[in-house]
Amino acid sequence: MSVFSIGMNVNADRIEQQNVVSVALNVNGEKMERQIEPRLLLSDFLRDDLGLTGTHVGCEHGVCGACTILVNGESVRSCLMLAVQADGCEIKTVESLSSKDGSLNTIQQAFANNHALQCGFCTPGFLMSIESYMKNNSKQPSDEEIKECISGNLCRCTGYSNIISAIKEAYSSKNSQ
């Protein structure tokens, strides 16, 4: 018999159905609640349960960074987190970046201007790593700092140089605003 408990003081949250847990979270500004298997990876939850397929899965062992999203504003590999662990969290995915009218945000636009993507598979992960970095570092970073910021994301197409240019451009256009 498998048992689920979510802290003995929160019986109300306990789901009686075997091996199913409830998660309530905020994804891209929308509150939601879902019943899921505890083993469900957050990456699969976003993609399969919520249809947010912009978050890509590249290695499922926490190296490639394609599945990077923001959890409470911090960059996290969604393949290394269970969906149930995101209970109560605020999640942001690549789908949240552009504005409602569809226009690209600063970093997305800088990627387009600098040809910072080719096949585009790794791109959402880069965008989310950079999004978090830019929120936490307002000062224009050095080349070394930029490289370190994206060193947890693998890109097999671009050779990174245009991604570095895009980050520089994003910083200058942000600072000139």
């Binding site: 397929t53 890509h56 690549v94 690209l104 387009a112 993507l117 585009g120 959402p124 965008l127």
Partner: peptide, 13 residues
């Protein structure tokens, strides 16, 4: 680029 930057590209998965 637009679709790939906004997460609206469609890969097989």
């Amino acid at each position: 680029d637009y679709r790939l930057l906004t997460g609206t590209g469609i890969f097989v998965a």
